[in-house]
Nucleic acid binder design. Structure first.
Length: 334
DNA sequence: CATGTTTCCTGACAGC
DNA sequence: TGCTGTCAGGAAACAT
């Protein structure tokens, strides 16, 4: 199940490999509607476009796309768009993609994914050769994969999209369980896509505390709510709570300010460590090259029911919270 | 609005 | 062996 570290790993991998490549042809299987955008419209929109950059927001992978060669946009309000992107940001919501991409670029220096060379940083939009005029947004759901492969590689079952590229390679979207979503949007009409909640790696202590105070729901349910934080899923909610020493059924609003800060720091450490290890391969997660991650080897509680706690040897307990399997140490977490 | 519940979907696995 | 039943789980839709 791809969460923030897995999605980040895939986005970096695709960015390193496909940046500057051109989509020559887009093929979509007819099976997996509903996409968020009808397949025919995606294909029409994607074909001919250049991939300027690929990055992550929340659990979404965003491909920034340049205009197709020799084709004028039908809705040329681009000068307007460019003006918006250069303006000083007034509020968080107004922040242009430029800043987020720049932040990603800094992050990139810390990557030590064993399965891949350290990549060149993701450029800010200002460094791109041209302004993005469209985006292809990929959500992997539970079992989605985004793979860079050669055209002659065997097509896996449940392959729902294949983008043929000018370099001769293909970008494939495979998703057996079909919880994944594909969306195409043109930027002349809407602002660039951003996940609905705060980014777990960038959220400030004050913002984090504000998000989680005054709520009655279980802290685990709050961590999973993408409208509060975007990117944390079941694995990293459990691992973050363990690291912070907080029980998953504590009420979000009952946590002290100190506990919330403890939780935020634990979450950041867990996520950054997981990114360094290329994510967790628990079911069938692989990165853009088909390589597995290694963070599952360092899980302290997730899927460790009845196994001894790594800190105190107490057997790990499994309960259900917010409809999700939830794992914790009854001794280390209070 | 806030929160809880149901639904989608298929591979894996248990039980007979 | 091979069938049936159950379950996991992200997020949208629906219910309270």
């Amino acid at each position: 199940m791809p969460e923030l570290p897995e999605v980040e790993t895939i986005a970096r991998g695709v960015n390193e490999r496909l940046r500057g490549d051109r989509i020559v042809e887009a093929w979509f299987g007819r099976h997996p509607e509903p996409f968020k955008t009808p397949a025919a419209r995606q294909a029409r929109g994607l074909e001919g476009r250049v991939i300027l950059a690929v990055h992550r927001t929340g659990k979404h992978i965003v491909c920034e796309l340049g205009a197709a060669d020799g084709i004028e946009l039908s809705n040329p309000s681009l000068p307007q768009q460019a003006k918006i992107a250069r303006r000083e940001p007034r509020s968080r919501k107004d922040q242009p993609q430029v800043l987020r991409l720049a932040a990603l670029a800094q992050n990139d220096n810390r990557v030590e994914h064993p399965g891949a060379e350290v990549g060149h940083p993701v450029a800010g939009l200002g460094e791109l050769e041209s302004e993005p005029s469209a985006q292809w947004i990929v959500h992997l759901g539970m079992t989605g994969r985004l793979l860079v492969s050669t055209p002659d590689a065997p097509v896996a079952a449940h392959t729902h999209a294949r983008l043929s590229l000018a370099s001769g390679r293909e970008l494939r979207f495979v998703d057996p369980r079909r919880f994944g979503r594909l969306e195409y949007r043109e930027l002349s009409r809407k602002d660039g896509f951003r996940a609905p909640g705060a980014d777990p790696l960038e959220v400030t202590a004050a913002e984090f505390a504000r998000l989680f105070s005054g709520r009655k729901l279980f802290i685990k349910a709050a961590l999973l709510n993408q409208k509060l934080l975007s990117g944390v899923g079941n694995i990293y909610a459990d691992e973050s709570l363990f690291r912070a020493g907080i029980r998953p059924r504590r009420r979000s609003g009952q946590l002290t300010r100190a506990e919330l800060e403890e939780l935020r720091l634990a979450m950041v450490q867990v996520l950054e460590h997981a990114i360094r290890l290329g994510g967790s391969s628990v079911s069938d997660y692989v990165d853009a090259d088909g390589a597995r991650g290694f963070f599952q080897l360092e899980h302290c509680v997730y899927l460790r029911t009845e196994l001894p706690c790594r800190r105190c040897q107490t057997p790990i307990r499994r309960i259900v919270v917010a409809g999700r399997g939830t794992h914790y140490c009854p001794h280390c977490q209070r």
